[in-house]
Nucleic acid binder design. Structure first.
Length: 896
DNA sequence: TGTGACCCCTAA
DNA sequence: TGAGTTAGGGGTCACA
């Protein structure tokens, strides 16, 4: 058969030959995913062999053939246990020059680590020795998430057959897989194909559990088919065993590709794993499978025992959960990444995303009192549970999580699972290793680079000129770091090392400001510049296709190209970080420092030149520059609605104001575009990004506001408290309003307002829900479920845990059975900050009606904090924080 | 009251 | 023991 599929995840299976046969050992890759026609599939891919590469230390003249001592050593390698063959040599590029490299074929992938270690001690260099076998298939066959395949169907779900169906076993499978069809094929018959929207199935679930006994009281599940949008909802109650079995059979029935829920990584999945251990007692493997066998693997004992991609979900330390053939995508984690919400409860995120849909966020069950709620109002609890099973699907839909991950997977050429739960370096690896293999560049092991000594110097940040500045043009370098990498051909493979035999002449290299040398592209084009150029071209294609789709009103194409161009952007911007890191396989400490050195040189050069032209630079950060425009002092910075109306009705003065404003705006645009054009170089394109009618900063770097009037009309705020998630709502709201006054240059009104807001806090007139603070809390969970404070170790992350408000709150949460996960945000109220000699007193905030009515806060503390924040702004208008606290201005020398 | 260490979070 | 980077502001605590 032929088909197209979106790959969810893959694993490999070792098939050892019987002791009496002379068959070769076999390694089969299992690719799980969903076809374009909606069927789920397991591909059993044959023909790929596990290998790694070795090179001798030292070199010789290759023309002379392999010297005999080396032949001896190679024969020794060939004779090692589990080594099947040694082939070569092939000449590959290494950091020390061109080297002969032999390929070592081994019996099974799991033999590689031990052999790698042994050969290292015998003075071999090891290459391509830490690449997971499934990745090997993706790299060698140049696959991405979307593939076309041709093979032989060896099993169909609807057919009646024993669990160990002969056709499947003969095809190298372990048994009958939990998918619609199982197909056997050769690795040459799997090929990359054009991206298409895979009709994935998503399974979302929620548990309600007893706080007293840790048992599962009830559960709900909701399954959505992304192709049709169809949803089905399930309720489970009664005997706890039946609840777990019901969930498992629902998973198997709908066969989802993605499993989600809210905070399932840290709550529901660990709980199910624990309860399975308790409930299976005496039932053996059969019981475990029935209770928690959610994977696509055959239902066999061996599949339970696997360390990862097993039949039951598992996780190694704190990594994401994994199971065979499906991917776990926690809606909590996705929402957190996409939205950076101020608080992270399900109801808060639901309110944020669906403000008008009351049913999605009303709290009608007291979760902290679940046992009693379940005893007295089971139907309400069940309804609440069902809603919380459905919401994660709404959340994933709202933030387009699945489509965005699919786009990242498509661009980086990895399975969906890697895009969803993998690291940035895995995405980069996928592209770079492919190119390395193509160009015969040896692939070093992760961690083989020399350690960075200390930090490298980063971007340059110009002192900001405090105060209000009219008509500021913001220019920035387009994709600065990627452009520098392309422009100077920066790559692991182009860096000139003194140890290399071929030392290029000075005119054949780019010399960085810190005098690191990189070969010019004519000598050797770097892999990174090649990849970045390709990504830039891809992005341009998607952007123009996006424009086209918008013009045609094609919503599907629009969504697709937007997700793709965004994925390309994310990936491009990840390159610098990965290559500047200390551990990545293709890095060297000089790469990162050269990139930033060139960046600093670029931006500082522009600043000097622009200033030499006579234009003031009020601020600059890394790749941007804020330039004062040559516009008359008296030009209006805004036109009120009244003036605009008057002008429309023929008022000449009003018309003159409008004209002057429009003229100023035009001249700013001209100026900005002119600067951009004059200072753009081929690989350092400067763009006029925004025009501000007014810019304000109190004088601190990375903190400023501006009124954008080109190309859009909006307020721009960076760094200030309004942007921060650890501030309190009243402060945020106050600052926002203050900014409006500041930009309108209404100093008196600003000060009046600030004073009034500070006083309201000081006298506790502000509702308590407006002073809720939230901060993340770290800590290592040493035992799940977290029942007591001893189950979390805070000392690894905090030098004095109990002096930190968020830790004390986290401990309270744990003691009340509310659960804790490392990195979660905890909410609290400051109740007393003036107990001198000890940390401030804080109270856990639960957002209940009872707390809202009875709890009180330290008004003085909050007033001082607001005054401090707002005072930085009002100082520009001659009012200090302490003036704001007093409510009146202190007489100073200057007042006389 | 001032200072440094530690921590969180953001800009780029 | 996992893994994109650095620059920077500002809050809190402990201690002089």
């Amino acid at each position: 058969m032929n088909g197209r599929m979106g790959i969810v995840s893959g694993r490999y299976r070792s098939v050892s030959p019987g002791p009496t046969t002379d068959e070769q050992p076999l390694t089969v890759v299992e690719l799980f995913g969903r076809m374009d026609d909606g069927r789920s599939v397991c591909l059993l891919v044959h023909g790929l062999r596990p290998t790694f590469e070795i090179a001798p230390i030292g070199t010789w003249d290759v023309e002379q053939g392999t010297p005999s001592f080396l032949e001896d050593r190679l024969n020794h390698v060939k004779a090692l246990d589990h080594v099947l063959d040694v082939r070569g040599p092939v000449t590959k590029w290494t950091q020390l020059g061109e080297r002969p490299v032999w390929t070592v074929e081994v019996e099974q992938p799991f033999h590689v680590p031990a052999l790698r270690k042994a050969l290292k001690t015998q003075s071999w260099h090891i290459y391509s020795g830490d690449i997971p076998f499934v990745n090997r298939l993706f790299l060698d066959a140049d696959l991405g998430i979307h593939v076309a395949f041709e093979g032989e169907v060896v099993d169909r779900r609807k057919e009646d057959a024993p669990p160990l169906r002969t056709e499947v076993l003969q095809a190298g499978g372990a048994g009958r897989y939990e998918v619609d069809i199982t197909v056997r094929c050769e690795h040459t018959h799997v090929q990359a194909t054009e991206a298409f929207l895979v009709p994935y199935t998503v399974f979302s679930f929620d548990l309600e559990t007893s706080i007293e006994k840790e048992t599962v009281l009830c559960a709900a599940a909701c399954v959505e088919e992304l192709g049709s949008g169809r949803r089905t909802t399930y309720e489970f109650r009664g005997d706890e065993q039946d609840i777990l079995k019901g969930l498992t059979s629902t998973v198997l029935k709908h066969d989802p590709d993605i499993i989600t829920g809210y905070n399932i990584d840290n709550f529901d999945l660990p709980r199910l794993a624990d309860r399975t251990q308790v409930l299976k007692r005496g039932g053996g493997n059969e019981a475990t499978m029935a209770l928690f066998g959610w994977g696509r693997a055959p239902r066999l004992e061996t599949e339970l025992k696997r360390q990862r991609d097993a039949l039951t979900p598992k996780r190694q330390s704190n990594r994401a959960w994994n199971l065979s053939g499906r991917v776990v995508m926690d809606a909590w984690w996705q929402a957190r990444q996409a939205l950076k919400p101020r608080r992270e409860t399900l109801s808060f995120v639901a309110t944020l995303l669906f403000p008008d849909d009351e049913d999605k966020h009303k709290m009608d069950v007291d979760a902290s009192n679940m046992d009693e709620e379940w005893a007295t109002r089971p139907d309400e609890v069940m309804a609440y549970c069902v809603r919380d099973a459905e919401l994660p699907l709404d959340i994933l839909q709202a933030i387009q999580a699945v489509r965005r991950k699919e786009a990242v997977a498509s661009v980086a050429k990895v399975p969906l699972e890697t895009a969803a739960n993998g690291s940035t370096s895995q995405l980069i690896d996928s592209l770079v290793i492919r190119l390395a293999d193509e160009q015969n560049v040896a692939v070093p092991l992760t961690g083989s680079a020399e350690k960075k000594e200390g930090q490298i110097t980063g971007g340059y940040v110009h002192d900001v000129e405090a105060g209000l500045h009219p008509w500021i043009a913001i220019l920035d370098f387009k994709s600065m770091y990627p452009s520098i990498m392309i422009g100077h051909n920066i790559c692991y493979t182009t860096r000139v090392d003194p140890a290399q035999p071929d030392q290029p002449s000075r005119e054949d290299v780019h010399a960085s400001p810190d005098d690191v040398l990189f070969r010019k592209a004519a000598l050797r084009k770097g892999m990174v510049p090649t990849l970045l150029e390709d990504l830039m071209a891809q992005r341009d294609e998607h952007k123009s296709a996006l424009k086209h789709a918008k013009a045609n009103g094609d919503d599907v194409a629009q969504g697709f190209h937007d997700a793709m161009q965004y994925a390309v952007k994310i990936l491009m911007n990840s390159f610098y970080g990965v290559f500047a890191s200390g551990f990545y396989r293709f890095t060297h400490r000089d790469l990162g420092s050269s990139i930033t050195a060139w960046a600093r040189q670029n931006i500082k050069g522009i600043i000097t030149a622009v200033e030499a032209e006579g234009h003031g630079v009020v601020y600059s950060d890394t790749d941007s520059i804020f330039v004062r425009c040559p516009i008359p002092e008296d030009a209006p910075r805004q036109v009120s609605d009244e003036v605009r109306q008057a002008a429309a009705q023929g008022d000449a003065t009003a018309q003159a104001t409008v004209d002057a404003y429009e003229q100023a705006l035009l001249s700013m645009v001209d100026f900005g575009k002119g600067l951009a054009q004059r200072y753009s170089r081929e690989s350092a394109v400067l763009e006029f990004e925004r025009g501000l009618s007014v810019f304000f900063s109190h004088g601190a770097k990375k903190r400023y506001i501006g009124q954008v009037v080109w190309p859009t009309h909006e307020m721009l705020v960076r760094g200030y408290e309004t942007q921060r998630t650890d501030s309190f709502p009243y402060l945020t709201a106050t600052m926002k309003e203050i900014f409006r006054y500041a930009l309108a240059d209404e100093g008196d009104a600003l000060v009046d307002y600030a004073r009034q807001r500070v006083q309201a806090l000081r006298t506790n007139e502000v509702p308590i829900q407006d002073v809720v603070l939230a901060k993340t809390c770290k800590g290592r969970v040493v035992r799940t479920p977290v029942k007591s404070v001893d189950d979390v170790d805070f000392t690894k992350d905090y030098s004095r845990p109990d002096s930190m408000a968020q830790v004390r709150i986290a401990k309270q949460r744990i003691e009340q059975g509310l659960g804790f996960t490392s990195g979660m945000k905890v909410s609290y109220i400051v109740t007393n900050a003036k107990r001198t000699g000890q940390p401030m007193q804080v109270a856990m905030w639960l957002d209940t009606e009872e707390q809202t009515n009875t709890m009180d806060y330290d008004g003085q503390f909050y007033a001082e904090r607001l005054a401090a924040a707002v005072g930085r702004i009002t100082e520009a208008f001659d009012w200090t924080a302490s003036d704001l606290m007093k409510g009146s201005k202190q007489a100073s020398l200057f007042d006389y």
